[in-house]
Design a protein around this nucleic acid. Structure first.
Lengths: 114, 114
DNA sequence: TTTTATACATCGAACTTCTATGTATATTTG
DNA sequence: CAAATATACATAGAAGTTCGATGTATAAAA
């Protein structure tokens, strides 16, 4: 099972995280598990990687957080997407679609590489 | 005409450049024009952005360069893709396909955002 | 009682990209 | 013919990023 390149992981992390939070409120640890599951283990954020991204998104007001004491007794910081974040997600989707078109256009007219 | 995000431009630059060079040998200035054209102006590399990328690719031996005096008298540094670069391009394509599947999966099961 | 899993946070190293700046030649315009 | 513009490459420094390492703390499992 091959891992993805850092560049792609970096470029995809914000749309992926916003996408997850647009479906359900969640917290850091759960997001890491979720992404790992969705990607079949191909994307595995380290906690030292994800938390700064969440902080950055919060600073940009794309997501909001609140502390919640779980039934378990452990406290969790839940994140939810904001309206601004929803707009951003739409914009990210458009961007992704555009770049995909550019790239697939490039690859289609390419001579065989075999 | 909307410009693409820096993250996406960064993540796509290597596959795009390798893709272009897999079709024709080219030089920095021409690559910039070419990408601008292919993307309908959505991707516009600055020269200060592209040249370091080319140097990096050359250092990794994914491309090779040679100087050529054009008919015009101006000298150009032509780049061509290496065998290693062709393999890399295949790998980049796979990565791109994988991340696309992950993302589109995420977006498909998402509730309406309208 | 020790280890593992859960849960969040931050620091510093390493790496990248981008803007600005510099050099130089050919062509076009006034 | 002089000035401006387009062509062509290069690098330094600022700013931003990711990631591994490290630290704290609690709950559950062994």
């Amino acid at each position: 099972m091959e891992k993805l390149s850092k560049e792609l992981i970096g470029a995809s992390s914000i749309p992926i995280i916003l996408s997850i939070l647009s479906k359900n409120e969640s917290y850091g640890y759960e997001i890491i598990q979720n992404v790992k599951e969705i990607s079949n283990g191909k994307i595995e954020y380290g906690d030292g990687t994800l938390y700064p991204v969440l902080h950055k998104l919060e600073k940009k007001e794309l997501i909001e957080s609140y502390w919640k004491m779980g039934e378990s007794g452990r406290k969790r910081k839940y994140y939810k997407i904001s309206n601004k974040g929803k707009k951003q997600l739409l914009s990210e989707k458009e961007n992704w679609t555009i770049i995909n078109q550019i790239i697939s256009k490039l690859w289609k007219i390419e001579p065989s590489l075999t």
